[in-house]
Amino acid sequence: MSILQLDNLSKRYGGTTALRGLSLQVEAGSVYGLLGPNGSGKTTTLGLALGVLRADGGEVRWFGQPISSQSKRRVGALLETPNFFPYLSARQNLLLAADVKRAAPATVDAALDLAGLTARQHDAFRGFSLGMKQRLALASTLLGSPDVLVLDEPTNGLDPQGIAEVRELIQRLAAQGKTIIIASHLLDEIEKVCTHVAVLQRGELRAAGPVSSILAATDRVLLRLDADIAPATLLHALGQLPWVTEVRPETGGGHSAVLAPGHTPAELNRALFASGVVLAGLEMRQRSLEAQFLELTK
């Protein structure tokens, strides 16, 4: 089932187009990463999806229905910054959020525990560090045990240990079957936790799909020859294969190339052997999401 469907969404701020005809679909149970450089439209996309920004065109559907108070209560979301009343304590803020979400006030204790703020629950929010504020906001998104979590830069302000904790939390929640939509510019984080990814640039969708397919599309094959075989022999043999492209020397020795979809490294090995080229080494080099991201947003 489609949890979230964005259809041809557009948004302008004055003369600037922040989002241009964006269509996306998030399936149940996926961990969906929204990637893009600063100003690419990630937060605008989430703001439109969460109903706090007015779209200039297009449609948002949650659980197959137009957005409503009922659909929103099935979604826990953190957008941009932790938004709380500074003069209220952590506990008072969560009790208020629980009221709005119609979650049982008893769930506040578990949320405070999860945020590691039980000891400081009666302190005013204004006195918290950025990391504590972020943890409180994350805990607030979990009130009422929503089916879906929308997290905009959830590791902002957290130390390395906090970042690891958030990653574990996301993985644990995903394992429980929750759908998670996460916007980040931290590619490493996305690569570690996401099943699907969409890449935005200047308000347009550049690529979307399962992380494996986005990455696999440009995996490179690294080919190494024995020292006594001239590289020209390899280059000549590769030149005969129309499904091998982007051949280039590698800095550590050997050459790398990209195979057209549907062709495997074994097939390449067989074809080269048939041409009389014996490889000393052949390995798939999976491209990092970072490299792929930079390629897509060039």
Partner: peptide
């Protein structure tokens, strides 16, 4: 105006309150 400054109107709408609410 506090609610605009603290962005709590925004958060309440995210959490399920309507604008009319």
């Amino acid at each position: 105006t506090d609610e605009f400054q603290f962005r709590t109107f925004r958060q309440q709408v995210i959490d399920g309150r309507s604008v009319a609410g």
